[in-house]
Design a protein around this nucleic acid. Structure first.
Lengths: 220, 220
DNA sequence: TTTTTATTACGTATAAATACTTAGTTTTGT
DNA sequence: ACAAAACTAAGTATTTATACGTAATAAAAA
């Protein structure tokens, strides 16, 4: 069983040292490098790939959420454990969206910390019990979709005008041209034209193709 | 602050007594009744409405999941905390789908138990850290939809023929009559008729209304 | 075995959407 | 200020969809 290689990113030296002491107490875990801000963390990681990046949310230069986002695109094999003193819904949700593998409160016990780290290092997910309540709240209320990691945004091979986007969204709600026209207070013919133009831009010829393409580009 | 009234449902007397001792140690919590199986639990609850039902999954007569399901339809105001020795994905997912407000492992500490109970009693959700990993696994992989509590199935105020259901599902995929006809190897006119008939049955006059109604009846 | 229901499909008329083109008016970028 | 882009909307021909009615088989229920 290989050692878990850890990089610590936190702007407080004291906190880093504390965590380091705590971790190096454990066999099987090795802190290979540290960083005191987000940008530095990314540099460190390119040089020396760890198993897990433990990252604080509040950091100068680039915050933890941003780091996690960068990680999931540039270093997807490095697991990320977010450490935070905030149990606010904002950060939890943002961390998940950014693609974090775990979220721990700084108030967590040593045992929980080790457990979380092992879980994350071995490819699992760990979110504290306190946090799971937040997750569940978002979760059971159908808001779950918003909690899924955001897919990297796709570059659209077409540009729609404001009006066209507006009409597209109404078309995707399956509204017909008459209703769209009424809603936007334009003539039905105008609505038709916009619809026609945007369908040409998207290179589709019917509603099904349109919705499929919209889904493909995550417009839906 | 009112006392939290608890009903305990577990088929092992020893377990019940242990939990009871643990809870009655706390001011603010009162165990008002017990049950040794699922059916009994439901009876007890109709007589004497508690704040929270603590329920074991494995029980004779009717298991905990079934009880939770019944609860959410017949006693939606009573919160349910599922207690289990299983941390298998099956039960967690099933509990959530059944509408449980919390899920705790029997190995949880007293503190965690009290915390969970308070959370659930006050309208929150509590799922242990261990469990949250399972949730997250389902969660981040887009399988989240399957984890949402299953809505009670709605009695349909209309009956569609087999063919109509078939056509309905294709219409809901936004396919047009020509494509539907080709797919089912019938004439376009026939497809039109079926579509026309089913729209009349559902009392809708356009695609948007149709999809809305389909969603309403969870056909989608 | 009747009777009913379901499935098929044609005809016809009207309404709507599609696929354009042209073109006047705003808005916006430089 | 001027050109480009965006928004508006009319005209027209063609294709679909809607809204029926009618009616022939096939299958299921009485």
């Amino acid at each position: 069983m290989n050692k878990i290689k850890v990089v610590l990113a936190d702007d407080h030296e004291l906190v880093r040292d504390g965590i380091k002491a705590l971790l190096e107490d454990q066999s099987g875990i090795e802190v290979i490098d540290e960083a005191s801000n987000g940008k530095e963390a990314l540099e460190v990681i390119s040089r020396n790939k760890p198993t897990v990046l433990i990252v604080d949310i509040r950091m100068p230069e680039m915050n933890g959420i941003e780091v996690v986002k960068e990680m999931s695109t540039h270093h997807p094999d490095v697991r990320t454990l977010v450490l935070s003193m905030h149990d606010s819904e904002e950060y939890v949700v943002q961390s998940i969206q950014a693609g974090a593998d775990g979220y721990l409160l700084k108030g967590a016990s040593k045992d929980e910390f080790i457990k979380a780290l092992n879980k994350v290092a071995s490819g699992g997910k760990y979110f504290t019990g306190d946090v799971s309540a937040i997750i569940m709240n978002n979760f059971v209320n159908g808001a779950s979709a918003t909690l899924e990691p955001k897919k990297k945004s796709v570059e659209l091979p077409f540009k729609l005008t404001k009006r066209e986007k507006q009409i597209l969204s109404l078309v995707l709600e399956l509204k017909n041209n008459k209703d769209i026209a009424e809603e936007l207070e334009i003539s039905k013919r105008t609505a038709e034209v916009h619809r026609f133009n945007l369908m040409k831009k998207l290179e589709v010829s019917n509603l099904k193709e349109l919705t499929d393409k919209a889904r493909e580009y995550q417009l839906i």
